[in-house]
Design a protein around this nucleic acid. Structure first.
Lengths: 336, 336
DNA sequence: TTCAATTCTTGAAACGATTCATTCTCGACG
DNA sequence: CGTCGAGAATGAATCGTTTCAAGAATTGAA
């Protein structure tokens, strides 16, 4: 059914080895032979069988990536950066979506292992990285994205989320806000923990400022809207006057709820700041203040580290790149 | 280096065939043997080599999908639906991003062919589908997504874009708008052509209404912003009073430009409507009217058709599912 | 004319899982 | 007591590509 090198070899009256050389080391083959083989390939419509190729090579030309949420523009931006770097070296990016679920994350890791992927980029759902450690021990380099852990074991590319949380809440406090609410969850996510830790730090430095936690099940617009509705249904005096959402999707949900259902003024009654600075943040009902992370660069760098680790082999010194987040002020916190 | 069935077989004192049976047809193996083999698998940390598996099987358990823009939530929603359907049958979705570029589309098709993918879902960049036809002829079913073509050759799942364009512009006209501008491009994209055709139809029905075309290089927020800035810099009398953008990203860009840079009132001075009804549309500065498409369902259905075609084999009667778009009115066209 | 040095080409041996025709083991039944 | 058959297990052959040691052909120098 499918055309193989054998068929091409026969059609061009050469050996299979020569066909393979034309494909992979054309310099080693006489020009006219190359032409003849290529004509045969063209004529027969030969397409390399990647499975056989990989079987022989022992490793694939793909890189596996698992993100928390493909619906979040932040992660698609990271993936884009990763894809760019991968393409530079002829690698393909396989993108998996864990949806913040351990089970889905696990099944992508299974898949990637079975595919003998060249390396793995992952934003892990939980704290437990033993599974990933095992993969790594078997020779597949893994790089943590947007998350730092056990520095000796995994390379990582991250942004200082504690600093980001601090920036966000300090900014709210500087705007005169005193009753701050942190909207986010699940708390198993390191991003959530760190951003909250930064928030706590900023609050601790400012006497008289209170911090309230409003938990969500995930970092989605829907969850944000639910949180916003909860706030909106409270009596005005019991509402916070500043809200820090763990990411922009949540923030946009909160914004929708507050703005559309209620008569709450933003930022006068409640100031709102998000995290990630996704492209849509600036186009929101009230343009959203946020903490910017260099998404594409994170992805690019992660693949870079991974490829370096793969090339270096066993005794590789793990690297850790930490970017600094940046405060972006828009109308949702600054009425002017 | 890597553990193979052979190693497992040796460790469990059985033959390789038995190990394979434990993996694939556990019913054919005596329970105690299954246990022994599984213990060996566990102990050695055996992971199936997918390349070898595929080589033998001749086809992979993956489905390839090429979309125009992963940054567009519409397509990630479609992909999500596709992934769901694929997962139901144990397939994996490989997601490629053509970025509206023929070259990138081509390299994904190459990749998918080499991977002997089970089937292909694609929103093609251009008009020329001969390449895709060849792939299809080689036994890999291809389903067109959000695009209908040569009905005998490819199955397709689409939305009636002409109807959608018609709905959008008729709505603008009903709001009393008379000088309509269509923002979109490149015109090589069928989506753009059809939506424009619908717009033309609506304009043709309404005496005295003019249609102006504002071309863009792609369907992105950035391009939309450029178009919006161009409009904004015109003298008021030369501006359109209704704008139909070929998708929501463009519309949001236009909105940003008009709203932030200028003193143009929306919808009073200019009414604006987009297409796709992405989640962010309702959270825009001015909540955006749009044409809704059942994104996830489109993806789900596309995989469904593809799997049916793959199962049926050669003499398969192509199917064509066409969904109807729906007008969603928000403040950007209806001041109330 | 011969020999050495290049430059090309060859074809068998891997890679690792799956398949399938065979062989082996029991137990039941006549 | 011999035979038959179901249930288990076996292992060689296979998928299609790449690699690599070895052979063939060509060139130039002596």
């Amino acid at each position: 059914m499918s055309v193989s090198v054998r068929d091409v070899a026969a059609a061009a009256s050469v050996s299979v080895g020569t066909v393979s050389n034309v494909l992979n080391h054309p310099g080693k083959v006489a020009p006219e032979t190359v032409a003849r083989v290529q004509a045969a390939i063209e004529k027969l419509g030969f397409v390399r069988n990647d499975a056989a190729r990989q079987l022989r090579a022992g490793k694939s030309r793909s890189i596996g990536m698992v993100v928390l949420d493909v619906g979040n523009p932040f992660f698609t931006d990271v993936a884009r950066g990763a894809e760019d770097r991968a393409a530079e070296d002829g690698f393909t990016l396989l993108l998996g979506n864990s949806d913040e679920k351990l089970a889905r994350e696990g099944s992508y890791l299974d898949l990637f292992e079975e595919q003998r992927v060249h390396g793995i980029l992952i934003t892990p759902v939980g704290e437990d990285l033993t599974r990933l450690g095992r993969v790594q021990a078997n020779g597949t380099p893994a790089v943590l994205v947007d998350r730092e852990a056990d520095r000796a074991q995994f390379s990582s590319v991250s942004v200082d989320d504690v600093a980001g949380g601090y920036l966000a809440v300090r900014h709210l406090i500087e705007q005169g806000k005193r009753r701050i609410a942190f909207v986010g969850g699940p708390h198993g996510l390191r991003q959530v923990q760190d951003r909250l830790a930064g928030a706590r730090k900023a609050v601790a430095e400012a006497p008289g400022v209170q911090l309230e936690l409003i938990d969500t099940d995930s970092l989605s617009v829907l969850q944000g809207r639910a949180a916003g509705e909860a706030l909106q249904s409270r009596e005005a005096v019991h509402r916070p006057d500043g809200v820090f959402a763990a990411n922009d999707l949540l923030a946009m949900g909160v914004l929708q709820a507050l703005h559309m259902l209620g008569d709450i003024r933003i930022p006068d009654d409640i100031a709102l700041i998000g995290y990630d600075d996704i492209g849509f943040a600036s186009a929101a009902v009230v343009p959203l203040s946020s903490i910017r992370q260099p998404a594409a660069l994170i992805g690019y760098t992660a693949v870079d580290l991974m490829l370096r680790e793969a090339a270096a082999g066993a005794g590789f010194e793990r690297e850790h790149v930490v970017f600094q987040p940046e405060l972006v002020v828009r109308q949702s916190t600054s009425g002017a």
